[in-house]
Simulated scan of single mutants.
Amino acid sequence: MLASGASFVGVNGLVRWLGTDLPAPQAAFLRFGFGLLFLLPSVWQGVRRGVTPGTLPLYAGRGAVHTVAVVLWFYAMARLPVAEVTAIGYLNPVLVTLGAVVFFGERLALRRVLAVGVAICGALIVLRPGLRELGSGQLAQLGAAFCFAGSYLFAKRLSQTEGAAMVVAMMSLFVTLGLLPLALLVWVPVTPVQLAALALVAVFATVAHYCMSRAFAVAPLTVTQPVTFLQLVWATLLGALVFGEGVDGFVLLGGGVIIGAISYITWREARLKRGVVTPAAGATGD
């Protein structure tokens, strides 16, 4: 998870460094185009094997939502401090929790309701509406958080019948196809340096997701989830040392509140799952 977080910060830093010279749809298309090259073997295997009946609309729906999400994220990343984008992005799992209640009928216990409320308070600390003007960057990142949450809900539904490699490969394929017409509408000349930077973004993103998958395979979420808070620390250091961005105490405080609420939800759900599979005291012998 440490390596995953560092890789995600590398993604953020490179996109922040690219700035606004490339339109967001074009930059996102090039990033996903390079990522699709890495996943071509998985895509080819999926095409040869064929998709499960009834899943194609789900793949297409996820691709559409994720396409909007990455365009909004690229737009926000080029205009906001790295730490602020990272902090607002912590809302994703909170929104996924609420979406699971709405779309999958999952029960929302009182403790989870309170934790979600605390996380929303954390987001308000970061955004500070009424105390400062919310610009297009903040609004874009909020929109990205909602859209990424929608993408994860599609992925959760697909994971019931599809393998993880297939889900990731098909997402990359549909997002690349979805970004292509948007990129062509705003296309500007690209320099070799910009292409190299976006290829490196794709490398960092691939490494980040691989490391996260490995962490989830060998450690419980109660261990891995709190480590994601370090992304905010690294993002703050990156913004301050590389881009000369000021350290915003409200962003750090709000991000900490959000990740604390997420960690509590994760810990609570892990305890409930253990309660189902762990024998009662005295039920087993020595």
Rank of each mutant, 00 (worst) to 15 (best):
A6M: 14
V9D: 00
L14P: 00
L18T: 01
G19C: 10
G19S: 07
P25E: 05
A28V: 02
L30F: 06
F32M: 05
L39V: 08
G46R: 03
G50D: 03
G50M: 03
T52R: 14
A60Y: 11
A64L: 15
V65N: 01
V68N: 00
V71H: 01
L91H: 03
L91E: 02
V96R: 04
G99R: 04
R107D: 15
A109L: 13
L114T: 12
L114D: 05
P129V: 09
E133G: 11
S136T: 11
A140I: 03
A140V: 02
A140L: 02
A140C: 12
A149H: 04
K156A: 10
E162D: 15
A165Q: 14
A165G: 06
V167W: 00
M171A: 10
F174L: 13
T176H: 05
T176E: 05
L180T: 10
Q194P: 13
C211F: 13
V218D: 11
V218N: 10
L221F: 09
F229N: 13
T236L: 02
L238D: 03
G239W: 02
E245M: 05
V247P: 07
G254Q: 03
I258P: 00
I259A: 06
A261S: 03
T266A: 14
K273D: 12
G275H: 06
G275F: 08
V276L: 15
A281G: 12
G282W: 01
A283M: 00
T284S: 13
G285I: 02
